[in-house]
Design a protein around this nucleic acid. Structure first.
Lengths: 346, 346
DNA sequence: ACTTGACGTGCAACCGGTTGCACGAAATAG
DNA sequence: CTATTTCGTGCAACCGGTTGCACGTCAAGT
């Protein structure tokens, strides 16, 4: 018999019996081998191997309080912003032999509360990404377990923030250089911290260039709503649009194309988050997001806390920059040709 | 004091003391309330609520063997194919109050083995998606814990398979109807079960229509490799390409556009997996994937097993269909204009 | 040669629940 | 009115590890 062929998992007691020692000794053979006789450790390890023994994570967690698990809660797994973040967090956790629970709040604070309750007794730390919870709830949960936040700014909780401000400012500078005098911001959900930040950055940067700014707010950031707001965009005098995210921007591009409006010749578009890479055509000018770095940093922060380094009021800010591709150009000269449908190339 | 304001989690013993009963009674108040006096249950529940008591998942798991957790292991979280699947699996698990561990094998069988070892003692079931493990390893792990597979066909293990065959066949029929006589398949990784399936389906369907088939194999399915293989595609006489997945197809579209070749007027492209929605321009004709259904079904299968319904050799096949959008058209008439760069519209 | 200490290992309690069994009281049967 | 269930609850063992403390042995210290 080899490698637990029986199917059942072996326990520490099995190993102890087979090795002719006590449970404690087996336990120590794995956790503090230096305190045991070298040949004892060897024998135990070999026997354990033969038996296919794997220490029971649950039992260990119960007695030590160290689960080796952490919970990662995001608002929507399927939103392309998150997967790279999740992947990076995963990888970082893996380096410290941590397992990660994934929770999907579906943008619903109550669901988020429920998930936390379900996780809280079996993880050492919580990592909340773009949490929709109230600040009070966050603080409450933070008292139960070590916690870190990503893209949510609550004083006293260690957090890492992706700062779109720098990137958005660059975008406005870029548009100003090209000669745009009137732009429009297509905003995301009002509850989003990132949305507030982007809108504000855009407005203040535009003010420096004496640009006019319109704002249109779709219900939810998506391809469809981007496409849907195109008429509203065209109703304004803007010559360029900055969208809350790339999905929205892509929708806008499609909407424009459907009306025969050529991008960037007749209208410029800038996205945010760079989730599409250069995959659109024309390839989208956008603001980088660094979500993978955020994921990595979030986990690192959390793990540091668990190791006693009280991170206290850490506030890690990752700045962003503009990625210039092919959806921005100088505005069409007035009179050269109008933007209205019908005048476009067939 | 309310709601565990102290910060520490309360234990069952605390509740028992506060309610003047024994631990067992508190336990039963939650697990089998019908066996207790109604007012006793009420009192305990109320007190538990006041204290902010949450049953310890870990302790419960240790004594019952029921963790209420399951592990979901995918080959690459960041591949757009997976997030919808993960999301659906998540949701389905949530309905049965299950927590899900997410594992990322990064296409590496050893990493997958490692993850399973780490998970196995704290989950009730394993769900492997597009596993890169050998059949032997899969069978081995399946003996330790209930297991289900997605897009991996191992006899004896319950599995759900997304069958691209039907969709690919429809794609070929569609191209044949349009008048294409020569197509090219841009394949994915050779280790991929889906790739083998698609290539074979394509070849046999093409044979029925007397179509010529070329095959080009990129190293990894991605936007970049799609873009890179365009010269190779153009070197063949094919008038249409079927790509292993949408990312590759999108890369091809870009590569074509860069050479001034108009899609679908001068060349037709079909993707697979429908991960981009209608988000490209022109919107991509592709084969549906139903990955969300697969995720849901996988979890359901697993949960059924846990409830004693021995699923035995279940083999659930989800067929697919062609989604016709705007990247396919009749091939350019020979002589009307050539496909070569330079002749394209400015 | 006798004490002292280091070293290697075992005992048993503990982590926080669950559960088979037993026990006393109340309800029903005879 | 006693005999037998039924009902509600407590006791204590158990799940599979970890860990403080104690014990025995052997080598070094004096």
């Amino acid at each position: 018999m080899q490698h637990g062929a029986g199917g059942k998992t072996h326990t520490m007691a099995d190993v102890a019996k087979a090795a002719g020692v006590s449970k404690s000794t087996v336990s120590r053979a794995f956790t503090q081998p230096e305190r045991l006789g070298a040949e004892t450790v060897d024998r135990i390890v070999k026997i354990a191997q033969q038996l296919g023994y794997v220490p029971n994570h649950t039992a260990r967690a119960l007695s030590t309080g160290r689960h080796g698990n952490l919970a990662l809660i995001v608002s929507d797994v399927a939103n392309p912003f998150f997967p790279p973040l999740i992947r990076a967090a995963q990888l970082q956790a893996d380096r410290s032999d941590f397992c990660v629970f994934l929770g999907n709040s579906d943008e619903d604070p109550r669901q988020e509360d429920k998930l936390i309750d379900r996780f809280v007794t079996q993880v050492e730390g919580l990592l909340l990404v773009a949490s929709r919870l109230s600040a009070e709830r966050i603080v409450f949960h933070a008292k139960r377990r070590p916690m870190a936040l990503i893209n949510r700014d609550v004083a006293g909780i260690p957090r890492v923030l992706i700062d779109s401000t720098t990137g958005v400012r660059q975008a406005i500078d870029h548009l100003a250089d090209l000669g745009h005098k009137h732009i429009i911001y297509v905003s995301g959900p009002s509850s989003s911290w990132a949305n507030r930040q982007r809108r504000n950055a855009l407005k203040s940067a535009a003010r420096l260039h004496d640009m006019a700014v319109d704002v249109v707010s779709p219900h939810v950031p998506s391809y469809d709503s981007g496409r849907a707001v195109v008429p509203e965009i065209l109703a304004s005098k803007a010559t360029a649009a900055v969208a809350f995210d790339d999905l929205t921007a892509q929708g806008i591009m499609t909407g424009m194309a459907e009306r025969g409006i050529s991008i960037p010749d007749q209208f410029s578009v800038v996205g945010c988050d760079d989730v599409l890479g250069a995959a659109t055509y024309p390839s989208l000018t956008t603001v980088s997001n660094r979500s993978d770095e955020a994921g990595r940093a979030g986990v690192r922060l959390l793990l540091d806390m668990l190791n006693g380094h009280m991170a206290g009021d850490t506030r890690l800010v990752l700045d962003t920059h503009l990625v210039i591709r092919n959806t921005t150009a100088s505005p069409a000269r007035p009179g050269f040709h109008s933007r209205q449908a019908g005048t476009a190339i067939g």
